[in-house]
């Protein structure tokens, strides 16, 4: 962490017009160049600019987890992330999870265990669970419960969500 500022470069506005920003978002491996209002969150950019509506808005205040996506491999809340902050970052959403029409093992497990009802929180739950597996926090049901607590399911499918994640974790699938 350099504290040296003698070679200070001027901070650069990211776009010419105040209030708009030019951003390159890499979403599910594809680059998108956007010229957007600086107020646009990553969530709104995904939904409104890129028509990727799988990522949901449940509270827009960081209190429900419905908007969970992965940025550079880590799960974050897209509602409290400015799109501008994600310039040249890797964003992964639910739309990129299945490949060649084949569901991800977690998606299949959610289906099999009925880990959802209305389905609104489900993309966030699944993206969160994808990260959870990478984090290695599936050692026990209690651990899964604790580290999935950032994703609210108002239909109350928690026991089935835990069962789905447990199953995939035991299979060692990624």
């Amino acid at each position: 962490m350099s504290q040296d500022s003698r070679n200070a470069r001027a901070a650069q506005p990211a776009a010419g017009d105040a209030g708009t920003v030019r951003v390159t978002l890499t979403v599910n491996g594809a680059d998108h160049e956007l010229l957007i209002d600086s107020r646009v969150t990553l969530l709104d950019a995904l939904r409104d600019e890129l028509a990727l509506t799988g990522t949901k808005k449940g509270c827009d205040q960081g209190a429900c987890g419905a908007c969970t996506v992965l940025v550079d491999g880590r799960r974050v809340l897209s509602c409290l992330t400015l799109a501008a902050q994600c310039d040249r970052r890797q964003v992964a959403t639910i739309e990129g999870l299945s490949s060649d029409g084949r569901l991800h093992p977690l998606q299949e497990a959610f289906l099999r265990h009925d880990g959802f009802q209305c389905g609104y929180c489900t993309p966030g739950q699944i993206m969160s669970a994808v990260a959870l597996l990478h984090e290695g926090r599936t050692g026990s049901d209690d651990e899964i419960r604790e580290f999935m607590s950032g994703n609210i399911c108002r239909c109350g499918a928690y026991p089935n969500i835990v069962a789905a994640i447990r199953e995939v974790a035991r299979q060692g699938a990624r």
Partner: peptide
Amino acid sequence: AFEYVRADDIGA
């Protein structure tokens, strides 16, 4: 509305 600026230098 606000202007978004990405800083790449601490002093600046």
